[in-house]
């Protein structure tokens, strides 16, 4: 029994907005990174749904590549977080604002 593609997209949208709002509201950098992971995955649902809908493997391949890039991103972001935490144990992202114009 086929589930309509619109349902998947709705789930994807809801999950994405959850991640986005979380990114904007939280101040712990690690939690923010997890919010970003949520957004990646929301995108992945949409890709996979479209792949199924159009019967095209390219969407799935793209999900695979997104996962890979997300892994790279997470590694780098966590490295930055590690650097920041070494400097001071208690980190609020709003404290890291020296790069303003």
């Amino acid at each position: 029994m086929q589930i309509p593609v619109g349902d998947y997209l709705a789930v994807s949208a809801a999950l994405f907005i959850t991640g986005a709002v979380g990114f904007l509201l939280r101040r712990n950098p690690i939690t923010m990174l997890m919010a970003i992971e949520l957004m990646w995955n929301a995108g992945n649902i949409a890709f996979a749904a479209f792949a199924r809908s159009f019967v095209d493997m390219s969407g799935q391949i793209f999900v695979f590549i997104v996962i890979t890039v997300a892994a790279a991103e997470a590694a780098i972001a966590l490295a930055i977080v590690v650097m920041v935490f070494r400097r001071r144990p208690h980190v609020d992202v709003d404290d890291i604002s020296i790069m303003r114009g």
């Binding site: 986005a20 904007l24 923010m32 992202v93 604002s97 790069m99 303003r100 114009g101």
Partner: peptide, 14 residues
């Protein structure tokens, strides 16, 4: 607008 606050930029993007 260029506050340097990451979350502000994020809000702008959204």
């Amino acid at each position: 607008w260029e506050t340097g606050y990451l979350r502000r930029y994020g809000l702008s993007m959204l």
